[in-house]
């Protein structure tokens, strides 16, 4: 039985931007300042099983969108292969396109003069969905996603979140077998995000052989939804397993969380012996800093504490905790988050 998605040593290199004499006002906004070639995907080999809800985690620029574009037949690999539903994306896109759809967060598709419903209907026509079937599904999905009262609003009148809901409906309306979701909950409020998460999960679980490949920056979202997760950074897959197994991987390590007075000088932590990785976030309203350390053992704790107190900062809480997906992420790609 073929995998829903399979890649073998998939590599994608973007040629460096040609330096153009022409300076468009628009072009300055795009701001890709690198000029040399970029390896967006580096020998990526993954297998996503039929019926799986597969997640991709990685910092900005890790290559997630690039992977999805290749799988969605929008971009050709530089080398290696990718198969979707058993077909090679480079050689045989038609049967793939029949089976897939893609939704990206923050996209602005459609025509401003059409209503939300008409826009989705139009896209469904490109997949040959009979109008009646399409309209039935659109109405059903609009109810589910809470867009029903905006069904006849022109797209240009929709808010960012409403637009995103419309895009989700566009993705589901063609009843794909494999759905690529690139940060699907971007810009949604907590409630709407939950509705969509539940719908996706239910869509995969309740039907046979529906597969979702999802990228996200929300750890909890990935942890809660995905059967398996790949962690990607700099175009390389660092790990790929179930959320439980990923967390177990760093079980040998110890996670400590500290809450201290806002502290600026954090560079010294990274050079400490026994500190595998760490992250910090400032809580401005309380004037405090939250620190998370991934340690090889409990040895360095004393040194960390003395470093903080020697700066005249107070430690408000210290706690050893079970690792979360976030900790796995920090432990693997933490350097991107310094």
């Amino acid at each position: 039985m073929p995998y829903a998605v399979e890649t073998r040593d998939l590599t994608r290199i973007f040629a460096g931007k040609k330096k153009r004499r022409i300076r468009r006002k628009r072009a300055t906004g795009e701001g890709e300042d690198h000029l040399g070639p970029v390896t967006a995907l580096d020998q990526v080999s993954i297998q996503i099983r039929d019926g799986e809800l597969f997640g991709m985690l990685g910092p900005n620029g890790a290559g997630k969108t690039t992977l999805i574009k290749i799988l969605a037949t929008l971009l050709l690999p530089t080398s290696g292969q990718a198969f979707v539903a058993g077909h090679d994306v480079a050689k045989d896109p038609f049967p793939i396109r029949q089976r897939i759809n893609m939704v990206s967060g923050g996209e602005t598709s459609g025509y401003g003069l059409l209503t939300a419903r008409e826009n989705v209907w139009m896209f469904s026509q490109f997949y040959g969905v009979p109008s009646k079937v399409s309209k039935g599904r659109i109405d059903e999905l609009m109810h589910t996603f809470g867009l029903w009262d905006k069904r006849d609003a022109k797209v240009r009148m929709l808010s960012t979140g409403q637009r995103q809901k419309m895009n989700m409906i566009r993705g589901f309306v063609t009843d794909p077998d494999i759905l690529f979701l690139d940060e699907p909950t971007l810009g949604l409020d907590v409630n709407a995000a939950r509705v969509i998460r539940d719908y996706i999960t239910n869509w995969v679980r309740s039907q046979k052989s529906k597969t979702v490949l999802l990228t996200t920056h929300y750890m909890a979202e990935a942890d809660q939804m995905c059967d398996r997760i790949a962690i990607i950074d700099n175009g390389k897959i660092l790990a790929c397993d179930t959320p439980e197994n990923l967390k177990r991987m760093i079980r040998t390590e110890t996670t400590f969380r500290l809450e201290v007075d806002t502290i600026r000088d954090i560079a010294s932590f990274s050079s400490m012996e026994g500190v595998k990785n760490f992250s910090h976030t400032d809580d401005i309203s309380k004037n405090r800093t939250h620190l998370t350390f991934i340690l090889e053992d409990e040895g360095p704790v004393a040194e960390i504490l003395s470093t903080i107190t020697s700066q005249g900062k107070k430690v408000h809480s210290l706690q050893k905790s079970e690792p979360t997906l976030e900790d796995v992420f920090i432990s693997m790609v933490g350097r991107g988050f310094e």
Binding site: F123, Q125, V129
Partner: peptide
């Protein structure tokens, strides 16, 4: 054939109604 006919109709639709809508 059905797929492509639908696609033609789908893409011409915004032009036809869009123009009248404004």
């Amino acid at each position: 054939i059905g797929l492509n006919l639908r696609a033609v109709v789908g893409r011409s639709y915004p032009r036809i109604v869009g123009a009248n809508r404004e």
